[in-house]
Design a protein around this nucleic acid. Structure first.
Length: 479
RNA sequence: CGGGGCGUGGCGCAGUCCGGCUAGCGCGCUUGCUUUGGGAGCAAGAGGUCGUAGGUUCGAAUCCUAUCGCCCCGACCA
């Protein structure tokens, strides 16, 4: 139950986030350290996310499959960078059936290794390619500091794993997926993102190229919201994924992998939500409209409920996800706050006065309180509501985009860079050397987010060392 | 692992220094009546091996010892 107020975002952003997740009924802490329980409301939101992505993946020729949770430890040894990257966060099963295992089994932190092993078995000929498989499930990483949705020991995601005959085709796959992720963020989550390439140090363990979409949260920190990797032949060589090409030569495959996780829910919270609670984009909201009937006496109840039931049916018939709040043990005021906490985009209030006037009160969640409330006629409500949902969706994206753009800076020199990344992002030329990147990380606590695909035509000089440099990068403090 | 804090009904806490009688308070929960257009009121209830295990004592939430767990701050990550 959402019974009292959240701390404001300005007061304590971290605590605002923690309480919001609990009070909006999205998730709860599990009895296991660092793990969360995704509650039905949170899972419904996740299902809306996954079903959109699943449809897009299938539309681009991908198929779903499932691989085991347990992976032989030895698999991780096969790719040098991969093992170095993941060894510190592996959970390992050492016993089974009361006896110690001959070979310990890792609980998958990601599935490149076991899938690579299987692909090696399945691929013989160029005719077997490409393989375009997506696995939906969860993985486990032994994180030191956890936070609901953003970083938990176990988290939910999809991982796409593809194998191709040529490097160009594999690279195209990586970009194709990143485009789907981008489209998801803009069209569904109403989150503006920047597509780009990760620096060498920020790259996925074992990848040749890692691309990402980066989003700015309300506190101006960056959140990597999706990634897509090109492995070249790294994993193919480690796992011997080979095929005979059309001229009967033995070749290594080119592979990719990519993911969006339940972390995206954290992003939606930190981009859109306000001091009243959760704000959800209408396209993903599990409940888009809630009806709150208001009455005192029994005769009022009969009249109000008659209208409320009719409105409910009319709206439901148009395909809107709608809920009737006919609880009688809580006050209307409580319900208003309760649904605002849960982020329902549109609230329809129907009271005795509305019955008389043939109107309803429409409240939009992106403008909380009385300001967002208008009175509209009951006639034609379905189009008014669907119009409002569309408007809210667009307005959230617009607001987030303006906020982000207003907080991306172009510092004149290194001193200014160190200052602006404390409360925003810097977009600066960078020589792409590890030294300059490390310096910024150590002195400003900001990392390179990505080198965007869209670059200015001009060239410049590295913000850190002053050497000529061709491309600009985003520096930001990140989650 | 290093530093700081905390374990007492579902949640948040008081009580611990200085041992004492039926272990309190707020929120939530249950039941009833009155309420309901921006977080309702009254009344009556239910609910606790005081993290765990030893010890000291006539007597332990309180003192001693051990142990477990959790949270926050520093090095990794979707």
């Amino acid at each position: 139950m959402a019974e009292d107020k959240l701390p404001t975002r300005t007061e304590d952003f971290a605590e605002w986030y923690n309480q919001l997740v609990l009070k909006a009924d999205l998730a709860d802490y599990a009895p296991v350290r660092g793990c969360m329980v995704v509650k039905p409301y949170g899972w419904a939101l996740w299902e809306n996310i996954t079903s959109w992505l699943d449809r897009e993946f299938k539309a681009t020729g991908h198929v779903n499959a499932a691989f085991p949770t347990l992976i032989p430890m030895s698999f991780f040894e096969k790719e040098k960078e991969h093992v170095e990257g993941f060894a510190p966060e592996l959970a390992v099963v050492t016993h089974g059936g009361g006896e110690e295992l001959e070979e310990p089994l890792a609980v998958r932190p990601t599935s490149e290794t076991i899938i690579g092993h299987m692909y090696a078995k399945w691929v013989k000929s160029w005719r077997d390619l490409p393989i375009l498989i997506v696995q939906w499930g969860s993985v486990l990483r032994w994180e030191l500091r956890t936070k609901l949705f953003l970083r938990t020991t176990e988290f939910y995601w999809h991982e796409g794993h593809t194998a191709h005959a040529g490097a160009d085709e594999a690279r195209e796959e990586m970009y194709r997926i990143l485009d789907i992720y981008e489209r998801f963020c803009y069209e569904e989550a109403a989150i503006p993102v920047i597509k780009g390439t990760k620096s060498e140090t920020e790259r996925f363990a074992g990848a040749q190229v890692t691309t990402s979409i980066e989003a700015m949260m309300w506190d101006k920190r960056a959140l990597q919201s999706g990634t897509s990797h090109y492995f070249g032949q790294n994993f193919a060589k480690a796992f011997e994924i080979q095929y005979l090409d059309s001229s009967n030569k033995l070749q290594f495959c080119e592979t990719t992998s990519w993911a969006i996780s339940s972390r995206i829910i954290g992003a939606m919270i930190m981009v859109h939500s306000d001091d009243q609670g959760l704000v959800l984009p209408p396209r993903l909201a599990p409940v888009q409209v809630v009806i709150v009937p208001i009455f005192k006496k029994d005769d009022e109840k009969v009249k109000v409920m008659e209208v409320a039931d009719r409105v409910f049916k009319e709206l439901k018939a148009t395909g809107i996800r709608i809920k009737m709040d006919d609880r009688e043990n809580v006050s209307s005021g409580f319900k208003f706050n309760d649904w605002e906490m849960r982020g329902i985009p549109v609230r329809v209030e129907i009271g005795p006065k509305d019955v008389e006037k043939g109107s309803v009160a429409l409240a939009r969640r992106d403008r909380p309180g009385k300001e967002g409330k208008t009175f509209v006629p009951q006639a034609g409500l379905d189009s008014a509501v669907s119009g409002l949902l569309t408007e809210i969706q667009a307005s959230l994206l617009k607001r987030a985009t303006e906020y982000r753009d207003a907080n991306i800076h172009d510092p004149k020199d290194y001193e200014e860079l160190k200052k602006v990344v404390q409360d925003g992002w810097a977009f600066s030329y960078w020589c792409e050397s590890r030294e300059c990147e490390t310096k910024v990380k150590e002195e400003a606590k900001a990392t390179t987010r990505n080198i965007p695909f869209n670059q200015p035509d001009t060239e410049g000089t590295c913000i850190v060392c002053g050497k000529p440099s061709k491309r600009k990068v985003y520096f930001a403090r990140a989650y």
